[in-house]
Amino acid sequence: MKSIKTIILVLIGSLGVSGAFAQSSRPPLSLNLNYSIAQPLGSLSDYAKNTSFRGWQIGLQYALNDRLALGLKTGFSDFYERVPRAVYPGKGEDVSAMQTHTLQTIPILATVQYTLASPEARVMPYAGLGVGTANMNYEKYWGEFVEKENKWAFQVSPELGVNVPFGKYSPVMLNANVQYNYAPFKVNEISNFNSIQANIGVKFHIQ
């Protein structure tokens, strides 16, 4: 128990020390541009099971030191599934329709990221967390007629990834990460928004 406390104290201490040497290696402000693939999970998958290949992500980060960075990111995913014609019974009602299930999501997240390697490393793994809001655009088509619901939901997105600099101390890096998204979003058949998302792109340290 005591040793854990010691480790934590040493960690905090080293954060402060590296903070004192901030901006020593790369410019602190960086821009991230990623292509995203997202796999729906849970009730979102029941609604629209297809993997989204129509996605992207853009983010800005400011490094407080070589390990810790704060930022903002946004992006887009488009979930889609077509269901062949069927009769949907309701109260005193039956509707025969081919349905097209779609959901577009645009998250806006504040991020914190901790790099698990030194700035000279050739591969820099990191862990991050994004917390914020997401615009959920639910559009269910009955034939050509759309049933719409647009809502904002709280979203939390933990993330694990790697940055691979193009050369030692290079301000340009390849970025690859996997992120899990959760939002308590409820509309009709969707009881929660759950997805796992893979992002690949580049990160530029600009100034």
């Binding site: 014609r85 005193g92 009602e93 039956d94 509707v95 025969s96 329709a97 081919m98 097209t100 009955w142 034939g143 050509e144 007629f145």
Partner: peptide, 13 residues
């Protein structure tokens, strides 16, 4: 979407 797919048939009772 084809014309056939665009159509919906609603009955109420």
């Amino acid at each position: 979407m084809t014309a056939e797919e665009s159509r919906i048939y609603v009955t109420n009772y």
